[in-house]
Design a protein around this nucleic acid. Structure first.
Lengths: 208, 208
DNA sequence: CCATGCAGTTAACAACTGTTCTCTGTAATT
DNA sequence: AATTACAGAGAACAGTTGTTAACTGCATGG
């Protein structure tokens, strides 16, 4: 299958990735709806018209960024849930996993948090669809736990959605606290930990 | 005190409000960081330079919009919490209150949800500060409930934050479902209701 | 080895942006 | 009644934007 991808298409994907990277960086201080095509090409060091060889518009660029950003988030969510069984230690580990992911992929987290409710409809929908798929996966993972005995499929999906939202919320708070003091960052993670613990307690006592 | 506000300043506040209203409407399909000053004045039917008589920049306009939008949200949150004691009926009432508020002030809800993580730092901070004040008020309200016996101040604030976030989350989901089918909207409110119920159960079993 | 395809360039366009300066009419003050 | 303050208009500015067209050079497939 993977025929070594001729030198031609390799270069194309290289500049395409450069455009994505530059856009992601520019989006740290603005939102997608104000991101200009020329702005991106200028940052890469390529002619404005070259943009069209890769994307029809910045909107399309945004949709592509959703794939990339949530692609990096995907394994994190899986790990988090399989780690977040119930006991105190597991939840702490899960929150640490989130905090660590924020440190290694801050731009991705920022992009998703920002554009989830952002001004570009197609991007909003792309994020929503991906998050729904995530919730579905989380549901499947949750179903394996012994605490899920007797739960309806609907309730499991409800809980999964709550977890996904809470993860993003926590990630966004960690992001804002990234450049704050050490104690502030620890305060954020401690609050997030207790919130997830409270949800876990609600889960344990849901039935009956 | 309230001396009937001369005809001069009355007109000024009138066009100021017109600018705010026009901006809020334009922001339904974009984010603040792409909102142009000329765009707003054009929508109002006033010269571009008139904008400077009221705001230094669109960023300032955004900060003013935070006051307005969260001003309308404020009583809603108070009602919701005092309604959301614990029992099933109360929670249903609270979610209905949120849904109703979204129907009557959709642009306000959209603005807050969008710019909370948006591309303009000052606006983000303004929203965060206001939401922290809300959480503080919710904490005070929660402390009055009998279920809060034995809770630490810190834990109450943690719970209050969880409630505030969940309210905004629910409001945003209601907003996206506003133009969807009747059954879709009911599905959203039913999921939100059960999520809040699960949190309430977690609250009841937090200690011990 | 030559012809084709195509990533990226250059130049130009009309439209738009934020900002400054100057001016006008009129409500408020004296 | 005369003067001042000031909300808004008008025109002009230098920059920027997205998009089109015609181009160049080079990797690729016959």
């Amino acid at each position: 299958m993977s025929h070594t991808l001729g030198i031609r298409q390799a270069q194309k994907q290289k500049t395409r990735q450069a455009l994505l990277d530059a856009a992601l960086e520019l989006l740290e201080e603005q939102s997608l709806s104000s991101l200009g095509l020329r702005e991106v090409t200028r940052a890469v060091g390529v002619a404005p018209t070259a943009f069209y060889r890769h994307f029809r518009s910045t909107e399309d660029l945004g949709v592509a960024l959703v794939e990339e950003a949530l692609g990096s988030l995907h394994p994190m969510i899986g790990d988090t849930v399989s780690a977040a069984g119930d006991s105190a230690g597991r939840i702490e580990r899960a929150v640490d996993l989130i905090a660590h992911h924020v440190e290694s992929h801050p731009a991705h987290v920022r992009f998703i948090a920002r554009e989830r409710h952002g001004g570009v409809q197609r991007v909003r929908r792309a994020i929503r669809e991906q998050l729904e798929r995530f919730a579905e996966e989380v549901k499947v993972e949750l179903a394996k736990h012994p605490e899920s005995k007797g739960w309806s499929d609907d309730d499991l999906l409800m809980l999964a959605g709550l977890y996904v939202d809470q993860m993003l919320m926590t990630a966004s708070l960690c992001l804002e606290a990234l450049e704050a003091s050490e104690e502030e960052r620890e305060r954020v993670t401690r609050v997030a930990t207790r919130q997830m613990r409270l949800i876990a307690i609600g889960r344990r006592n849901w039935l009956g």
